[in-house]
Design a protein around this nucleic acid. Structure first.
Lengths: 114, 114
DNA sequence: AAAACATACCCAAGTTTCTTATGTATATAA
DNA sequence: TTATATACATAAGAAACTTGGGTATGTTTT
């Protein structure tokens, strides 16, 4: 799936933020949620998503829990305590980056305006 | 220089946009402009900048012109016609991506609001 | 005078993060 | 029975960086 080349590095933040809002999600669900929220414009590839999830788990930010649903295995991810801390950190990093981008690309831009 | 991990993918757009606004800039000048505009928060590394400039030139989006200033060589870059077209394309790509990011990360967000 | 910093260009090795392609398996719809 | 949807996963390769060099001149600090 997919064809969006931009801002490599924001996938982790997306995953963490969705998990902050949802308590518990599985991989496939994350791809679908992102697709919904962006009306199909951003499609997370599985080749990007699963390695990212595994990495976040290895770093201790996520824990997993396997569930059987209709003869299908689902691997649910949720935030650890460290994960909860990291969400805020990653979010403000990204938001400050986007703010800086605006300052570079749109000299008229002021924070708090359209 | 530098210590900002994000930006993957947006550097080309930054270069093109600055050149749209300034007609003609040299590499070092670009790093300084970005530093100014972001109050030191984004520092373009030379290891990232020069390869990016060379690539954009190879793609026919930029042309160069060498000038001697105080016994120092400066390589000025400016947009070609194709470069001028690409600025708009890259800008709307990036803006739509940022919009989608907002939709994912901030469910309250609506375009045109703070 | 020497050292440090600023200006100005460049490249190469290595890392991270992605894309693309592939594989496994079950369930349902055409 | 073929395709699509659900659900996981890995591996090769590409792209865009970081880090750490190198060259050279001019200025400021110690």
């Amino acid at each position: 799936m997919s064809n969006n080349n931009l801002i490599k590095g924001s996938l982790q933040t997306i995953i963490l933020k969705l998990l902050e809002e949802n308590e518990k999600m599985y991989g496939y669900e994350i791809t679908q949620r992102v697709k919904e929220l962006t009306e199909g414009e951003i499609k997370i590839t599985e080749g990007a998503l699963y390695p990212a999830l595994h990495k976040l788990e290895a770093e201790g930010l996520l824990t997993t829990e396997i569930q059987q649903v209709d003869n299908r295995v689902r691997k649910y991810y949720s935030l650890t305590k460290n994960g909860q801390k990291e969400v805020s950190a990653k979010m403000s990093e990204l938001q400050s980056f986007v703010g800086n981008l605006q300052r570079i690309l749109d000299p008229e831009w002021k924070p708090g305006l359209a």
